[in-house]
């Protein structure tokens, strides 16, 4: 049955080569922890991606309840955390996932650095990886404001003051991020848009490039 459905689609779209490109390739043996236990360091990248997937999914579900408005944002978070079944768990996943993504990404960066995997011909992939690092830090910064509680608000105040201290463009950057002179309704709407649309868009694009390059070049050889 399944085979028939597959054949039907395959006849029309010729998907077998696609499948081959995505899944049917080889991986060097030295990155498999089953062969050398020390190879677990090669898992950090995959785990980072796994947490990113958790973040995207839990974030999508959270927006079912969340409203980006200074009057109702806090109440909606409070509601989904305390009144909605499993809301506490899903928000917890998003909250702790945010920290874990940073941890795993940090470890992944160190692994790539200390195995010298960024060297020719993989320079570009390293640059994309560092850009991903920035995007994820940006996601952390913008996401922190969204619950609109005390912690969120004042951390953003400090963060934007740091941005303001930059020479020449400081004031401009701060106003642009805050969406106005004060940190309030417009800031929250802006941070929400950045957190939910702009940065994830950039994240997906960069991740695509990251994976494409890995697939094209293969994993770097053993030391």
């Amino acid at each position: 049955m399944l085979q028939k459905v597959y054949d039907w689609v395959d006849e029309r779209l010729d998907i077998t080569p696609l499948w081959r490109d995505i899944a049917d390739h080889e991986v060097p043996e030295h990155v498999n922890p089953a062969h050398h236990f020390s190879a677990f360091v090669y898992c950090f990248g995959g785990l980072t991606f796994f947490v990113v997937v958790i973040q995207i999914l839990s974030g999508m579900f959270l927006t079912m309840y969340y409203v980006p408005d200074i009057i109702h944002a806090y109440e909606s978070v409070y509601y989904l955390q305390n009144e909605v079944t499993h809301g506490l768990i899903v928000r917890g996943m998003h909250h702790w996932g945010a920290s874990l993504v940073i941890v795993m990404m940090f470890l992944h960066t160190l692994r790539v650095f200390f195995t010298g995997s960024y060297k020719k011909p993989r320079e570009l992939n390293w640059v994309v990886g560092v850009l991903l690092f920035f995007v994820i830090l940006g996601l952390g910064f913008t996401g922190y404001l969204l619950p609109w509680d005390m912690k969120a608000y004042f951390a953003t105040v400090v963060g934007l003051e740091i941005a303001e201290s930059a020479p020449v463009i400081g004031g401009f950057a701060r106003t642009l991020l805050a969406g106005g002179e004060i940190i309030g309704a417009q800031t929250l709407a802006r941070f929400f848009a950045i957190h939910v649309f702009f940065l994830p868009g950039a994240l997906l694009g960069l991740l695509g490039a990251h994976f494409f390059m890995i697939r094209k070049q293969g994993i770097s050889g053993p030391l």
């Binding site: 955390q81 928000r91 702790w96 951390a155």
Partner: peptide, 24 residues
């Protein structure tokens, strides 16, 4: 460990000591 949630933001509370998330 449930995700923490403090009270609603009160911009007039000048006594609050802010703290960014741990990675900053």
């Amino acid at each position: 460990h449930p995700a923490p949630l403090e009270r609603i933001a009160d911009p007039t509370d000048s006594g609050y000591i802010p703290l960014p998330d741990w990675y900053f």
